[in-house]
Design a protein around this nucleic acid. Structure first.
Lengths: 188, 188
DNA sequence: GGCATCATTTACCAAATGGTAAAAAGTGCA
DNA sequence: TGCACTTTTTACCATTTGGTAAATGATGCC
């Protein structure tokens, strides 16, 4: 739980008792590679914090191709938050890319924290907003060519290169797997 | 102001007195085409709501090319919100594409609303989060080809086609202006 | 170990897009 | 109206990327 607490304290202060309250509401969740954390068409039921592992957001486009939209790794929140809040069904899958250890909060527990910790809403919203902001900033830039997008991916996600299948990275970067393979060859 | 109130009430209820408080904190701002609402390298000073006009988010990439990252039009919030909250300098410009009428809230007034209206924070955060969420969903999809991206742009932003220069749309879609011109020709 | 299965690389050609340049169309102003 | 200026279109060819297919490399299971 230490990682989670350290993460939270970036966004505001909590005393020991409040930290205990947060911990008491969280539960450990282990996901096996390819398990879903949440699914398209279903209402997201929990907020997660990744202690170990990689999760991706993905969906199927109208050609039936599977597209990876984002990667989330250690020490980050994982949740389709807007739909979690609105009790609306999600349009994408959140799927474990590797075996994962998470700390998760049910909707009930997550909401209770707002009632029992003064200032929790403030921390919570800063966390969620930073999360959304970073996703939009660390993603591939559409105006760059594929090689540049791959090089920036390596910079932004150095720890992912060897634990994520090439096909996921390819659809994330908007190129075919074959093109990405060729790009990697040309870089060396 | 009616548009703003209607927009806000989507996210939660306010009584007449509270609505008056919101109105009392907002100010009218007129922007001329190409004026900046906020600038890269500067700390965003206000939150805006677009009553009339179009604003774009843009920046200069490392080749010095000007890249449009998003379009925001009537009945939407406009703000680099994370940096506004954090008093951090922005990495992009928010620039009027057409003459604009806005209702703006200074940082001081925006924060005061949190103190004087119970439940304002809740409304505010839902607004901001939906705003960020939509930006990530309405943007061009990197795994689609340029023609598809343009067609989806037309669907997502039908009102922008004739009031935004082609060059802005081109960089937004990640193609050169010449390519976009060719694409438009082939669609007809 | 050997086999089946899946992931990645390579090759080939077709199609899409970029870069440069020039022409055409549109806009504002004297 | 006519001129200067900006925006958009068009054309040409080089380069990048996609689509299909097959070969190679990895991985897990019996």
């Amino acid at each position: 739980m230490e990682e989670l607490i350290e993460y939270i304290l970036q966004f505001g202060n909590l005393n020991k008792q409040q930290i205990e309250l947060v911990i008491s509401k969280g539960q450990i969740l282990q996901l096996k590679k390819e398990d879903y954390f949440s699914e398209a068409g279903k209402i997201p039921k929990q907020v997660g914090f990744i202690v170990e592992g990689v999760i991706r957001g993905c969906y199927y486009n109208n050609k039936g191709e599977e597209i990876t939209r984002c990667f989330i790794s250690e020490n980050s929140l994982v949740c389709d938050y807007v739909n979690f809040e609105a009790n609306a069904s999600s349009s994408e899958y959140l799927q474990a890319v590797t075996d994962c250890s998470l700390i998760v909060f049910s909707k009930k527990n997550w909401e209770e924290l707002s009632h029992i910790i003064v200032g929790w809403d403030n921390i919570k919203n800063k966390m969620v907003q930073l999360c959304m902001y970073q996703k939009s900033r660390k993603g591939p830039v559409i105006s760059q060519d594929a090689t540049t997008r791959y090089l920036e991916f390596l910079e932004n996600y150095p720890s992912l290169t060897n634990r994520v299948p090439l096909s996921y990275i390819a659809s994330y970067l908007g190129v075919t797997q074959q093109s990405l393979s060729r790009i990697r060859k040309n870089i060396r």
